[in-house]
Design a protein around this nucleic acid. Structure first.
Length: 229
DNA sequence: CAGGCAGCGGCGATTACTTCA
DNA sequence: TTTGAAGTAATCGCCGCTGCC
């Protein structure tokens, strides 16, 4: 006896209703997989319609030699499996997008670090040149003062130096957060805003990344901005 | 018209079984 | 030969919809 014969024999029983009591059909040896042709036909139908009209279901069942209920169950299971596969696909896409985003973030983080270092270097240079200019200025002052009363000169010099020192400290504190002095700070903020508009928040610079299905779901649950800390 | 009820079908979770490495 | 994982047909319980009374 061939396997097909076993199959047909068992389904003969099922189809005759002996095993198809809806309530409590004992899982028995009668459970057999559908034949390749049956599966193929069902797959073809499923591709065009994932749900069957009752009339169509009866028709398909008759054509394939199955019970309408078996066809209905097959479609139910098929929908469930299809859904699972779709979820897996979507998950893989999401994961790929996340990895892409993470690597972009890493690159930007490094760029930012480099810019901060550059900013610090420039700030230091500016501070030094300013210091030099003040030293030069103070030297000229001293020459001018030495031609007047000597006693005033002796009193003046240390105070001038202290005040200059305080002035420098204040400047440094003022620029600690921005890296610029007040007059250049406005310009700096403009640059930052422009960069922000064109590079960071503009979606067309993010390649093919699709954010619609990700952001609307995850933004409420996952604080993506934690990246930046 | 509103409300209760039965029948039907879909879905998610689970079970029971088969197949295969 | 045994065993564990994966696949699959079928069951169960729940829910929503629809038609009837």
């Amino acid at each position: 006896m061939e396997e097909g014969d076993v199959f047909n024999c068992c389904f003969g029983e099922i189809n005759s209703g002996m095993c198809m009591n809806k309530k409590k059909m004992k899982k028995s040896n009668n459970q057999k997989r559908f034949s390749e042709e049956q599966i193929k036909s069902l797959e073809v139908i499923f591709e065009s319609e994932t749900r069957l009209e009752p009339r169509k279901k009866v028709q398909v069942a008759r054509e394939l030699g199955l019970q309408p209920r078996q066809v209905a169950i097959w479609f139910q299971n098929k929908r469930a499996r299809w859904k699972t596969k779709q979820l897996e696909k979507e998950y893989n896409i999401l994961r790929a997008n996340y990895n892409n985003l993470a690597s972009q973030f890493d690159t930007m983080k490094k760029e930012k670090q480099a810019l901060v270092f550059e900013l610090q270097r420039l700030n230091e240079e500016m501070r030094k040149s300013k210091e030099e200019r003040r030293d030069e200025c103070c030297g000229e002052q001293r020459v001018a003062l030495s031609s007047t009363t000597g006693s005033e000169n002796e009193k003046c010099e240390p105070e001038v130096r202290i005040n200059q020192g305080i002035g420098l400290c204040n400047d440094d504190i003022k620029t600690e957060y921005f890296g610029f002095e007040e007059e250049s700070n406005h310009e700096f903020m403009n640059i930052v805003e422009q960069a922000d508009d064109s590079c960071l928040t503009s979606s067309d610079r993010w390649g093919g990344f699709k954010s619609d299905s990700i952001l609307d779901q995850s933004s409420s649950n996952y604080p993506w901005w934690d990246f930046w800390s």
